[in-house]
Amino acid sequence: MEAPIGVIDSGVGGLTVVKEMLKRLPNEPIVYIGDDARCPYGPRSTQEVQEFTMEMATALSKMDIKMLIIACNTATAVALDEVREHFPFPVIGVIVPGARGAVKASKTGKIAVLGTVGTINSHAYDDAIRTLLPNATIHPLACPDFVPIVESGLYKSENASGVVKKGLVGLAGKDFDVAILGCTHYPLVQHHIQAHLPSKVQIISSAVETVFDVERILLSKNITRDDSSKVAPIFYTTGQTQQFLSIVEDWLAIKKPDVRHIML
């Protein structure tokens, strides 16, 4: 099936999902919308996030996508069910896959969840983890300063290390062996996060686990693309194209990516 897979996010965070898709599903066309102009979603109201998510999903539905990935954890937490009810194509979120990966990886059942204020306050990860592991000990921590560091393109800077160190103070003294990156922006500062957590802690990215689900659904619904030729992804942003383009080039190692502006 030649139709593309749509990916939406509050900004550049969903590029971590795209990165995994390019590794595992290199022949699948991808169309991406990042709502950088209204990022971050974490502090916003549930109604706002639902409205913004629906606007992006509607825009991609007009591009005849065959599947939609809500690559934003905050949007997944509050808008997944609504979007699924509204559109005929499969819609995948990132929270259940991330929770599943963490439960598989944890030997102690003690799991830290790093996320935006919106994701943490929704308790969506707590619910997803306890559905799989009822006796789990969960340490949720909102890290609101991580997304702005990524969106500004400063995720490799020394300043980023300091921001991450300060953001993780709430986990001091807590016992856990797995930490979920419960925001798709966070893998871009994963090296900083790992440096400021105990060495025994395994980090789980919801992005990696989500692509396993994408692959499974493509096969089960027989909607994989038969053509083996590669198609370059198309990226849309509601914000500044140059900033978005520079992060795509750096994170995805794509030269001269096709980045366009979109009004929602």
Score class of each variant (00 low, 15 high):
residue 99 A to M: 09
residue 106 S to F: 10
residue 138 I to G: 06
residue 144 P to Y: 08
residue 17 V to W: 03
residue 45 S to F: 05
residue 14 G to R: 00
residue 83 V to A: 12
residue 106 S to C: 08
residue 161 S to K: 13
residue 263 M to Y: 11
residue 162 G to S: 07
residue 240 Q to K: 14
residue 256 K to F: 10
residue 263 M to F: 11
residue 89 F to L: 05
residue 93 G to P: 03
residue 15 L to N: 01
residue 258 D to S: 13
residue 208 V to F: 11
residue 181 L to D: 03
residue 103 V to L: 11
residue 201 V to A: 06
residue 102 A to N: 05
residue 200 K to Y: 09
residue 33 I to F: 08
residue 217 I to P: 01
residue 166 K to I: 10
residue 69 I to Q: 05
residue 209 E to D: 12
residue 185 H to E: 09
residue 176 F to G: 01
residue 29 P to V: 03
residue 246 S to F: 07
residue 158 E to M: 08
residue 104 K to Q: 14
residue 171 L to T: 04
residue 16 T to S: 15
residue 13 G to Y: 01
residue 10 S to P: 00
residue 8 I to Y: 00
residue 55 E to T: 00
residue 98 G to C: 04
residue 258 D to I: 12
residue 183 C to K: 02
residue 45 S to H: 03
residue 17 V to I: 13
residue 60 L to Q: 01
residue 253 A to E: 15
residue 37 A to E: 12
residue 188 L to D: 03
residue 152 S to H: 07
residue 44 R to E: 02
residue 71 A to K: 02
residue 230 K to L: 15
residue 249 E to H: 03
residue 77 A to V: 07
residue 256 K to R: 15
residue 169 V to L: 13
residue 168 L to G: 02
residue 244 F to E: 10
residue 96 V to R: 10
residue 108 T to H: 08
residue 18 V to D: 03
residue 243 Q to D: 15
residue 178 V to D: 08
residue 182 G to Y: 06
residue 19 K to Q: 11
residue 151 E to F: 08
residue 219 L to C: 02
residue 89 F to R: 04
residue 108 T to A: 11
residue 216 R to S: 14
residue 252 L to I: 13
residue 19 K to V: 01
residue 98 G to M: 02
residue 48 E to R: 00
residue 83 V to D: 13
residue 165 K to D: 12
residue 209 E to S: 11
residue 65 I to M: 08
residue 186 Y to Q: 03
residue 71 A to T: 02
residue 82 E to V: 09
residue 236 Y to L: 10
residue 135 N to V: 01
residue 40 P to L: 07
residue 39 C to F: 05
residue 35 D to W: 06
residue 187 P to G: 04
residue 19 K to A: 14
residue 85 E to Y: 04
residue 103 V to I: 09
residue 156 K to T: 11
residue 182 G to P: 02
residue 195 A to F: 04
residue 71 A to L: 06
residue 2 E to Q: 05
residue 206 S to Q: 11
residue 117 V to T: 14
residue 3 A to L: 09
residue 182 G to A: 10
residue 24 R to V: 02
residue 51 E to T: 06
residue 235 F to I: 09
residue 248 V to W: 10
residue 162 G to Y: 05
